[in-house]
């Protein structure tokens, strides 16, 4: 079990994480998937959720991502994420408040474009609250 997965988490602003792990679980658009060493090449959309990095059976880090893409190739796993945040840094109260505000904005939305944009934001905010409510999953 010497093989490890090289995992990189990159946001537009900077590289957030670059580690070697035994397994990384990623919230794909069509369900969570785990990436082990020598995983087949894959490109996947992400849905809002939590990326978990495993060291043996233990989770060593959890990061919330709002949206983005995951690429698995021969070099390992690269996640391009916007709105990425370590789970333990999310302030639950503030996350809830933000969700409420966005939901209110959504009710007041006038145009279809506006509504679509806000619906996306609400989905992200809701996932963020849910992730922060259950930090140990």
């Amino acid at each position: 079990m010497a093989e490890k997965v090289a995992f990189e988490l990159i946001s537009p602003e900077r590289v957030l994480a670059s580690v070697e792990a035994d397994m990384v679980v990623v919230p794909g658009a069509e369900g969570d998937f785990g990436v082990l060493p020598l995983h087949a090449p894959l490109v996947s959309l992400l849905r809002p959720g939590v990326i978990r990095v495993y060291e043996g059976d233990r989770v060593t880090s959890r990061t919330f991502v709002g949206s983005g893409f995951a690429v698995v190739d021969e070099r390992g796993l690269t996640v391009l994420a916007e709105e990425a945040e370590p789970l333990e840094q999310i302030d639950l109260e503030r996350a809830r408040r933000r969700l409420r505000e966005l939901e209110e904005d959504l009710e007041d939305a006038k145009t279809d474009e506006e509504r679509q944009r806000l619906e996306r934001l609400v989905a992200v905010a809701r996932a963020r609250v849910e992730a922060a409510e259950r930090p140990d999953i």
Binding site: G28, A29, E30, A40, P41, L42, V43, S44, L45
Partner: peptide, 11 residues
């Protein structure tokens, strides 16, 4: 051979 999830067009 790349796998795409969902289809390449959607991505």
């Amino acid at each position: 051979v790349w796998e795409f999830e969902p289809e390449p067009g959607v991505i």
